[in-house]
Simulated scan of single mutants.
Amino acid sequence: MRITIREGGPDDIPAILAMLDSSVAWLVGEGRTEQWGTAPLSENRKTVESVARYMDEGVTYLAEADGVPAATLTVTGAPGAYLSHLPPPGEPERYIHWLASDRRFKGNGVGSALLAHAAEETGRAGISLLRVDCYAGADGKLVRYYEGNGFTRTEAYTLANGWRGQVLARRV
């Protein structure tokens, strides 16, 4: 399988939402509904607006497997407003939002390829800090996934609704 990475744009939003929906369906099938719930994210107006807003604020990348959109993430200059209670890092950073893959491509390295690309682009921009946050509940698999891709745990947090998250950082 040949993985290529390209910049995405507004025309890619339907494919990105389909990847998010694929992730939700997979999580539901695994009995892991605490992360993103049970309904397709494409049906959530706030999610659709968030995907578009981060795309406007930063750069969206898509990993394609043999020409088929397989995974996505967006990189901006700051975390989302929901993390405004955390102290700023005290230096320029790049922040990853909405990493998701079409679960048909699970295990083929498309997400890891995107994370490596984001790190490379961060370094090319002269910035040495790349951060991401993720769901930290249940079995902790997602946190370990990021750790396996060179990230280190920094701040843990809990949102008002009880959703537990973890910020991770990677030096590039």
Rank of each mutant, 00 (worst) to 15 (best):
E93W: 06
T60C: 04
I5C: 08
G111C: 11
L114A: 09
D139Q: 03
G123H: 13
P14T: 10
Y135D: 08
V51F: 02
T33F: 06
P10R: 14
N161E: 05
Y82F: 12
L83P: 00
A119K: 14
N161A: 01
V110N: 08
P10W: 07
Y54E: 01
G150C: 10
V167C: 02
G37A: 14
Q35K: 13
W98P: 00
G165Q: 12
A169N: 06
T76D: 01
V59D: 02
Q166P: 00
L73Y: 03
G140D: 02
H117D: 06
E57L: 11
A39M: 13
A156D: 10
G150K: 09
R45I: 14
G126I: 01
T158R: 05
E7Q: 13
F105A: 01
E91R: 15
Y135L: 11
T154D: 08
Y82L: 08
G8Y: 09
G123I: 07
T158Q: 07
L83C: 02
P40Y: 09
G77N: 03
S42M: 14
G150F: 05
W98Q: 08
T38K: 11
C134K: 03
E155V: 00
L99H: 02
R53Q: 02
A81R: 13
G162T: 02
R94W: 14
L17G: 07
E147A: 11
R2P: 03
R32M: 15
Y61Q: 01
L130G: 01
V28T: 14
G67H: 10
V48W: 13
N108V: 00
A70L: 07
L168Y: 08
L142G: 01
G80Q: 04
L99D: 07
D56C: 06
A39L: 12
I127F: 08
A78R: 12
A65F: 14
L114W: 02
A81V: 02
G140H: 04
W98F: 10
A118L: 10
A63P: 13
A119H: 11
W36V: 03
A18W: 13
K46F: 11
R144T: 04
S42H: 15
